[in-house]
Amino acid sequence: MYRISQIAVLLFFFLSCYPQGSVAQVKVIRLPELQSMMKSPGDKPLMINFWATWCKPCVQELPYFQRLADSLPDRFELVFVSLDFAADLEKKVIPFAQRRQMKQKVFLLDEPDYNSWIDLVAKEWSGAIPGTLMLSADRSTKVFFEKEYHSSAQIWLDFLHSSNQQTIKP
């Protein structure tokens, strides 16, 4: 009896340790952190994908972003910003990010008053998700795509389009 409980404890210990090596971390952020992400120049262009676990088209397009980022790691940085409710962090968002092996940075934006900040991300965004913001390396240009993607190639084309806008701009 004692041995069984010992094994159970060991098993529990191993199971709880197991995923931690590859575990996706999800950090809760507020608007100022998102804004600083959008403003601080980096060495690569930045792609911010706005999604949520409850949003079917978002969940469907996630692998296309992951695959593109995996195959072209030098061309841009990818960040996922979840708009799930903060109360669902432990129950839904972290397990989802682990299951989907989201290696990229995953944040949860805890700002329930949507009208106060959607325009600050992009004037052309109505608030529907999925939506993706593409920023140049120096963060001087940004283009928002309020649409769902059905392939990595579509994302790549929009990325090239957004980079083009950068060269057109004086």
Binding site: A52, C55, P57, L83, Y114, N115, I118, D119, W125, S126, G127, A128, I129, P130, E146, E148
Partner: peptide
């Protein structure tokens, strides 16, 4: 006029 997060149509 206000904006909000929501599901796409």
């Amino acid at each position: 006029f206000t904006k909000a997060i929501g599901c796409t149509i």
